[in-house]
Amino acid sequence: MSVKRSLTLTAALLAGLGLAACSNGHKDVNALTVAKSAVGPKRSQVVADPAQVQAAVNEALNVLEGPLALVTFEKTNNNVVLRQIATNGPYRTWTSWSQGTDRRSVTTRNGVITATRGLRNDLMSSDVSQTLSLVSSRLSGNATRIQRYLDGENQIVEMRANCTITRGGQNRVQVGAIDRMTVEMTENCQDGDRSFRNIYRVDGQGRIVQSVQWLSDFYGLAVLQSLRY
């Protein structure tokens, strides 16, 4: 009989036993929530079929007032209609329109994602002012962007990337209540061995209408588009 193996199993067992208990307090972590979290990222709102997405977008435009957006997480191919729930200076915080019990949010600054909550390895805050000043005025140039993540030890890990922004061609974007000409701006970023690329489509007033943005290794790329300002 291997003692340490048993110890490991015992530790797991003890932890498991804590889960099995019932009590009169707040609904705490229990065996069921653990089983759910073990299944991986929640996919309660996976809407991948284009017709369905279109229907959800149309419904949201009819039912809701105020700014709306659509985000697509590339790793899960999950399309979520976002509505704006708060503003703080230039920052807007969005959450899913048809949200169930799990609360997740995305914060943007003029269309650039600066924070996420509830996605794991969350982007806690960003400094994108240099990127934004170039992108919204549709100018090529260099920018430094800072993205801060929460790691497994509850520490903030800062990523500071040097980016080159280049102006590309024109596109017409027709999504939701939006129909306008845009200029495509590409941001190529490098931080040591890491590299990633963001693409923004910017309208004549400097607003980012559509974008592909690299969030994190956990969530990969997000496609964000405005449905209504």
């Binding site: 284009p50 590339e74 559509q210 690299w214």
Partner: peptide
């Protein structure tokens, strides 16, 4: 047609480069 979907397809190419990256940890 939702315009973003074409962008999603486009993003797949970018995804290949992003996925191979190591995640930043305090080095």
């Amino acid at each position: 047609m939702v315009g973003g979907l074409s962008l999603t397809r486009k993003s797949n190419k970018i995804a290949l480069t992003a996925v191979a990256l190591a995640w930043p940890v305090a080095a």
